[in-house]
């Protein structure tokens, strides 16, 4: 029997899951959110999402000198997440710049997938917010008109053509039902709590997120809102603005959040506290982006301080 037997160290089985399959699962989770965005804000939402994803993927392919545009799928996720944080109709070049910044500065300057400290999509978003504030914040929000796919059709590219409206975090007067369904002004991916939760349930059952980060994040936002203005205000703070998008999809980004169970809770709570402090005391209406970016920076320290107890480990003083 003269055949070459392969010798390698155990285990000899590998799970079918790889980085690409994880990223595809995230894209699938974001599908209801994207669908809802188109449903609420019209075709223009689709254009924004496609530009963000394609530019992110092409940028990454150029950096990695790869022909395979989709690659491990992480650039597509970054692009789509960035689009989710943008208003319905920023100029196309703003979207493209955001994607390039996210991939180049947010990801590859740190060494590429797995090595980046900050959530790339939020880096892109933050740079846009600082550099082109007029296009991504302020008077850019519009009142969505469900089913009217032409609200902001491809031909009408500026916000002024549509009815601008104030974000629910500026007015604090939206109904909770509207906030839940998503029929309020806001960025593409943040308005519909319903769609966000559906996607998150999928991610949970696929084993890609656990309850600790969203639980800590949403929990503390609710509690701080509750202390500030009662139960309804607590719910309002959770549903309005980017808390759900941030807690379920951004803060749970694997690379930039802790791996330890306790670390995840600390991280989630930290994100929520910063968000609420900015909302309640800061000059900006929204603080999710900076809350998460700040906690991203602390992730390595949190991980190191919260390594779990080993199985069978006895308390130090009995040893």
């Amino acid at each position: 029997m003269d055949r070459k037997l392969v010798v390698s160290s155990s285990p000899h089985l590998r799970s079918p899951e790889d980085i690409q399959s994880v990223m595809v699962d995230v894209l699938v989770a974001l599908f209801p959110v994207a669908l809802m965005a188109v449903f609420l804000f019209g075709y223009r939402a689709l254009v924004t999402m496609v530009i963000a994803m394609v530019v992110a993927m092409v940028t990454e392919a150029i950096i990695l000198r790869k022909k395979d545009i989709f690659g491990d799928g992480s650039a597509a996720v970054t692009g789509l997440l960035l689009a989710m944080t943008l208003p319905p109709s920023p100029p196309w070049w703003v979207v493209a710049v955001g994607s390039v910044v996210a991939i180049v500065i947010g990801k590859h300057l740190f060494g590429g997938v797995g090595n980046n400290i900050f959530n790339p999509a939020l880096v892109g978003r933050a740079v846009l917010a600082v550099s082109w504030a007029g296009h991504v914040a302020g008077d850019v929000w519009i009142q969505p008109v469900p089913f009217d796919l032409t609200v902001l059709s491809v031909t009408r590219t500026t916000v002024s053509d549509a009815v601008t409206a104030a974000s629910p975090l500026a007015t604090y007067d939206a109904s909770l039902l509207d906030l839940f369904i998503g029929t309020v002004p806001g960025s593409l991916g943040e308005t519909s709590a319903l769609a966000l939760i559906i996607g998150a349930i999928w991610l949970y059952f696929r084993g890609h997120i656990d309850w600790r980060i969203p639980g800590g994040f949403i929990g503390i936002v609710f509690i701080m809102g509750l202390l500030d203005g009662g139960f309804t205000m607590g719910v309002y703070h959770v549903l309005a603005g980017g808390v759900l998008l941030g807690a379920l999809y951004m803060a749970t980004d694997m690379v930039t959040s802790p791996v330890t169970p306790i670390g995840k809770i600390i991280f989630g709570v930290g994100c929520g506290v910063v968000t609420m402090v900015i909302r309640m005391f800061g000059t900006m209406p929204e603080g999710v982006t900076f809350g998460i970016l700040l906690m991203n920076a602390l992730t390595p320290i949190i991980d190191n301080l919260t390594i779990p107890k080993k199985f069978g480990e006895v308390k130090k003083n009995d040893a």
Binding site: R14, D210, M254, V255, T256, P258, V259, T260, P308, K310
Partner: peptide, 26 residues
């Protein structure tokens, strides 16, 4: 199909190894 050499990627810090470790090791 079981012996295919899989390329080693950087750790994406998903924590699945920690969650799966019966000894609770990082």
């Amino acid at each position: 199909e079981f012996v295919e050499e899989l390329p080693i990627d950087p750790c994406i810090k998903c924590g699945k190894c920690l969650e799966g470790c019966p000894m609770n090791l990082p």
